[in-house]
Write a protein that binds this DNA or RNA. Structure first.
Lengths: 307, 307
DNA sequence: AAATACTGTTCATAATATCGCAACAATTGG
DNA sequence: CCAATTGTTGCGATATTATGAACAGTATTT
């Protein structure tokens, strides 16, 4: 039994006032309308109409049920409309805040790919590492790399972000490869000051226990790319997210060190304000991102084996 | 496509977390669940789940749609429950105010008939001609005979009530049969004081125009039956609803007079307060009454030809 | 590391439900 | 009183839907 069609059927009969008329409007045989109405009445065990072979009058029960049917049908259509992709592409703007390095390196290609499917979307991208107030500044969405999501906002985890400690082969040859975290104090450390403490690096030992080890910051920068390039130029040891250095590691320009001590795992999130009616653009884009970054990130596929 | 089953299907998949599990719960093959889910996604043109052959995660779109589906299904089930006769008979009380004469003569048999089908209903009948405050005194329903329904309440028309002017053959023989309304002043009029003015009877002429004619009240009573009996006992001319005197007219004990001048048409109504959730008892009983009194009332079938 | 168990999807077949047509019964309006 | 219209029912044809096995991919276990 198709509850839905039966309701629609019933509504039409009420509004047109006759079975024949409703059948015309619905484009089906009147026998079908009659039978569906009968089915509905049998299902409810109630008479919806007083029938006098030629005339039909709603019963009180029928009238009450009619109003509820109308409301339910409207709700359903609205729900479908709100969720349905209005065929093909989306339109409108999408203002997004995203961290500069991750944004440039990995969100850029993703956004380009999304634009293939939805060329009508106008992206307004703000590459910035400061924390923006989503509501205040009218952002639809922000990409954040953090240890835990901000609970006051909706957060969808996009990808795990693992950091890697590494240095160039030449540097290691010249200065030696550290065997324990303590030895880092004798090395030149290049600090990515956004994600880590200035003077400490947080690690976990073989048993998964957290601890921090003091380092000697030889150079500090808020851009991961800069200290990566510095490390490639034999300037010292860095601790940066793998998504920044994965190519250099694959090419052997940088070599992981102290692999037994895993840096703290953090994550990339898409976050957006809690609004009652989330726009279809945001929903679709976030769905797209979640799917694209699902599983082990492509930047970790190769270097996974090396760590 | 069965929207409803698809929604139910989708909800189950979300709640159980897997297609196989949902299939077990629903008692259908998992292929059916899979296909319906696919149908729903194609209908919306949207991915509801991120799928990884083994694991399924709701998309944002899916989550939003899920909540709306749940609400819609709940509404639907509630609507059906509110309208459905819970198989067989109803239970509970039904407190009804009804006019004494009409109540005794015509509602009595109707209520008895209703009790055949629903013996569990406990009727609490208040035969009374004063206007009761439904809300205040806790009535579920009132039967009223009036010209127009009280607009602040829900009113369902049960039957047309036509009045008849008549007298006994002996009386007419002795005093003469009036030919015009004016002549009524020379007659003994017995007044049913509830429905009509004390000193005027309201009539319509052949063209349907309303007018009132003065009468000389010889006897007044608030009980139709009393003045009917008085008229049968040759006491004078009465103007009463046909449902009171139809048997006497059929038997020839009373004879209509001034048939060309129709008394004003009034109606019998079932009225009840506007509450958000009308009880199923009231609805079913009113539906029953409307159906029972539908068309020309049985008390008018015979005398129709005589007037 | 390999095997196993479990997942979701697909396909052809079978069962089911639904529809339209036509005949019928009942009522209304001229 | 007849004609026209309405709602209901039965039957054959059609379309829809479920089923169960085979398949492909992924965790879990040993």
């Amino acid at each position: 039994m198709n509850r839905f069609e039966n309701m629609e059927n019933f509504i039409r009969v009420v509004e047109v006032g006759s079975i024949s008329g409703a059948a015309d409007r619905l484009g089906v045989a009147k026998s079908a309308v009659s039978r569906r109405l009968k089915e509905l009445e049998e299902h409810l065990g109630v008479e919806l109409f007083h029938r006098t072979t030629r005339r039909m009058n709603l019963t009180d029960t029928g009238r009450a049920f009619y109003h509820q049917c109308v409301r339910i049908l409207e709700d359903t259509l609205e729900a479908e409309l709100a969720s349905a992709q209005v065929h093909g592409t989306l339109k409108g703007g999408l203002k997004i805040a995203l961290p500069s390095t991750f944004g440039l390196m990995h969100m850029g290609p993703a956004i380009n790919e999304f634009l293939q499917a939805h060329p009508q979307i106008e992206f307004d991208l703000d590459f910035n590492d400061r924390e923006v107030d989503l509501m205040q500044e009218g952002f639809d969405l922000a990409i954040r790399i953090a240890r835990l999501p901000d609970s006051s906002l909706i957060a969808r985890r996009l990808a795990p972000i693992q950091s890697i400690m590494c240095a160039s082969p030449s540097y290691l040859k010249k200065m030696g490869t550290p065997k324990t975290p303590d030895e880092l104090l004798t090395h030149q450390c290049l600090v990515y000051s956004l994600l880590h403490d200035y003077e400490y690096w947080h690690l976990t030992d073989a048993e998964g226990k957290e601890f921090k080890t003091k380092i000697r910051p030889y150079l500090k920068a808020t851009t991961g790319e800069f200290i990566r390039d510095a490390a490639v130029a034999d300037q010292g040891i860095i601790l940066v997210p793998s998504f920044i250095v994965y190519k250099e590691i694959e090419r052997g320009e940088l070599i992981p060190v102290l692999k037994e001590y895993k840096p703290l795992q953090i994550d990339a999130y898409a976050i957006y304000p809690q609004t009652r009616h989330l726009s279809q653009r945001v929903r679709t884009f976030v769905d797209f991102l979640v799917k694209r970054f699902e599983g082990t990130p492509y930047w970790d596929l190769q270097i996974q084996k090396l760590t």
